[in-house]
């Protein structure tokens, strides 16, 4: 028996079925389904948790107990662009507090002109595994390494002015990044369409399907 959430898009219903079928026990699909529900509802709403409970055969309060444990399941209050500034130890040593301050003040500067339908949310986060390219920033979990306060302000202005549909890590790195933790390899043409991780099986990617020089999928 696979429950279907009729108000989800057809594609997301199919994804949910595939994901549930890929685990020996359907409760394991809970976290992936919370990501898909975030695509449907823009965040983990009460309705989303009820739907995921129905799909996984547990109660809504059990879903809430899990969703509230993990910082990346947002309960609302997040704009189209989630700017996460790492301020853990290595980024701190590299001046991340100045990057965070610059971002926060530039958000203040642009708040008046930013239309409500595309707001930017800023958060400081713990280590995102980019310590060799500190300080590091993510936009919708897509990475930029070697960011300066000046580049961070330019990033906010760029997001406000261009309002990209798809957030691409290589594009941002080229525009606003500096030293990287390591060479990244060929360009990654897939990116984030929402403030959730961009991952094909969860339906959260945008952009082309084949990167420059990379194999087809």
């Amino acid at each position: 028996m696979t429950a279907v959430i009729s108000n989800w898009s057809h594609d997301n219903q199919e994804r949910a079925k595939r994901i549930i079928a890929s685990y020996p026990e359907k409760r394991s699909a809970l976290m992936p389904l919370l990501y898909i529900a975030s695509l449907e509802h823009a965040y983990v709403s009460d309705d989303a948790m009820r739907e995921v409970a129905e799909l996984t055969g547990i109660t809504p309060v059990q879903v809430q107990s899990v969703a509230s444990f993990y910082t990346m399941f947002k309960r609302g209050g997040v704009g189209d662009y989630l700017v996460s500034v790492c301020t853990s130890i290595s980024c701190y040593l590299g001046g991340a507090d100045d990057v965070l301050a610059a971002v926060e003040s530039s958000i203040g500067d642009v708040a008046g002109e930013a239309a409500a339908e595309r707001p930017i949310t800023v958060e400081h986060v713990e280590c995102i595994g980019a310590c060799g390219g500190a300080p590091a920033v993510q936009v919708n979990y897509e990475l930029i390494e070697g960011v300066t306060p000046e580049k961070a302000v330019a990033l906010i202005k760029w997001l406000t002015a261009t309002r990209p549909e798809v957030i691409l890590t290589d594009e941002m790195q080229q525009l606003f990044g500096g030293r990287r933790s390591f060479e990244w390899g060929s360009t990654d043409s897939e990116g984030a369409v929402r403030p959730i991780p961009a991952f094909g099986p969860y339906g959260s990617v945008g952009g082309g399907s084949v990167g420059g020089g990379s194999a087809g999928r």
């Binding site: 976290m31 992936p32 107990s65 993990y70 990346m72 986060v125 991952f199």
Partner: peptide, 29 residues
């Protein structure tokens, strides 16, 4: 053999192996 990728959601503690297993089962880490 089947291989399934599973994305976490921002909890350091899930690097501890038994917390990871709980998380993979759809529970708090």
């Amino acid at each position: 053999l089947d291989v399934t990728l599973h994305l976490g959601a921002g909890a350091y503690i899930c690097g501890e192996e038994t917390a990871l297993l709980n998380s993979l089962e759809g529970r708090r880490g």
